[in-house]
Write a protein that binds this DNA or RNA. Sequence first.
DNA 1: TGCGGCTATTG
DNA 2: CACAATAGCCGCAG
Length: 567
Amino acid sequence: MARGDLVAVALADDVGLGIVVVATGRSFTLACDAPSDVVAAIDAELRPRWVFWSIDTASMLVRHGVRVATCWDIAAVHRLLYGGWRADPARVWAVAHDLALDAMPTEAPFDLFHQELLAGDDPEDPVRPDGHLSPEWANGRWSRSVVRLGRWAELAAVVTLVQRARLVEIEDRPRAMLTARSESTAELLCAALAFDGLPMRRRVAEELIAAFVGPRPSNEVEAQAQRDDRDAAVLACVPGADDLDLRSPGQVKSLLRRVGIEVPDTRGWRLEGMRDAHPVVDALLVWRKAERVATTYGYAWLDAHLGADERLRGAWSGSDGSAGRMTASAGLHNMPADMRGAVIAESGHVFVRADLGQIEPRVLAVVSGDRALAAATQDDDLYAPIAQQLGADRPTAKVAVLGAMYGQTTGRGAHVAGRLEMAYPIAMKFLRDADRSAQGSRDLRTYGGRLINVGSTNANDVDEREMRRIAAARGRYGRNAMVQGAAAELFKMWAVLIRARSAVLGAQIVLCLHDEVLVHVRTEHGLTLAALVVDALDEAAHGWAPDRSVRFVADVSVVERWSDAKA
DNA sequence: TGCGGCTATTG
DNA sequence: CACAATAGCCGCAG
């Protein structure tokens, strides 16, 4: 048996850790409430692909100070195979055994009536007579017993085998097994990201916030006074508007109406061009910026998410429920650019920051197999050769390509859509096919094998016009999900390779942002790590798209502040 | 109190 | 201003 095929199941709950190693068809329990150094030793010596039911095990291991190299994350693979987000053991088990989901048992209230109903069940068997998993077991009955632990681990091994078989069976998706592995290992990365946090200097962050909303108020009265001052600056622009509430879109609309500005909504991009129409417009936009900082990225945000060790922590998910991008809470994925100046490497450390250039059109070239588009990716800036091909300027070419990937049908991009179709017919057909499938409520599967669940509309609920509008939106969603999803798969392969290769440098990935990665490392290893990150992209891209006809590029820099790197 | 709408931030 | 996400406040229904 190959080293990588050795399967070890790690299970963890609040009280401890258990391990079962499965080899050549026989399983034997190594330990229950095993010390974490046993896990670490097994990982170092045997390098198994650990099997986890979910990221919870990885998180538990990380909290115990153990970072294993690779894993098979049953929940992550389930999401890949079947789409959506729900992937608890009972559901995964049922799907793996083709059992009806609506017959899935829920945990019975502990009373005599249900005791009666369950009389035929064996509490020591996690599988009920109807084939479903016992909810009691799914909720932790396996813990603190060597025998039950072994039984629970066997089930995980069984599910793993079913999942592997189904990945192989997916027609026309040869990268599915590879994707399942990297999606699994990305869960280990997420567990570490949540634990480690993003270095952020509290004093600097507070200064940046103060620049927008003033010093930290010491009580609620002061906070209210600051709010009132901000509001007054806007309301003073319009006589008699003192009692209007700027936080209410309807009242903002009437505020604007008083100065002769009639708008269907008050979104920033709509008001942007009207700054000259009346002073209140500019005042309102400035107010909105400050209000955003005050409510979402202000002192309360720091207090809630920035630890005493000056690390910003949020919850990480290896894939969202649709196309499969990573998600993060606590503002880690939508922190205003102005706040990035506070993301500063710790003393004696630097960040290696890298982002993939123009990843979506390059990914489109791979997944569609369009040779003409692949040729364009040889350029550092692929929009340059595309513009030349279309006989248009670069901004127009870029808008057209992005519009095709998002499903835009109006505006400047649509103007050259015909020429885009002529120049890159394979890529355009790929997008159109995805659009059409999704419009018809047919599920899609990404290049790496992720199922994209496409909803449907009940014709009774809406009229014909609304029906078409929803179908069109579904088409745009499907079109984009095929590109965005594949890009997410490539990104995660890159990220987990960086994680694996940079472990010897003591490096820590501290942020993943769709096409960008931030790695924290001791200063003396900065340049080595930067080179490693570039090599990792080459390796990931080659494994993902072996024919090498599409070029991927990364912008890499070694910096002390995140904001120093913005290209 | 929960939820949809509006708004803003990011890729 | 199309695709995706998180997140806050308002207004309304229950």
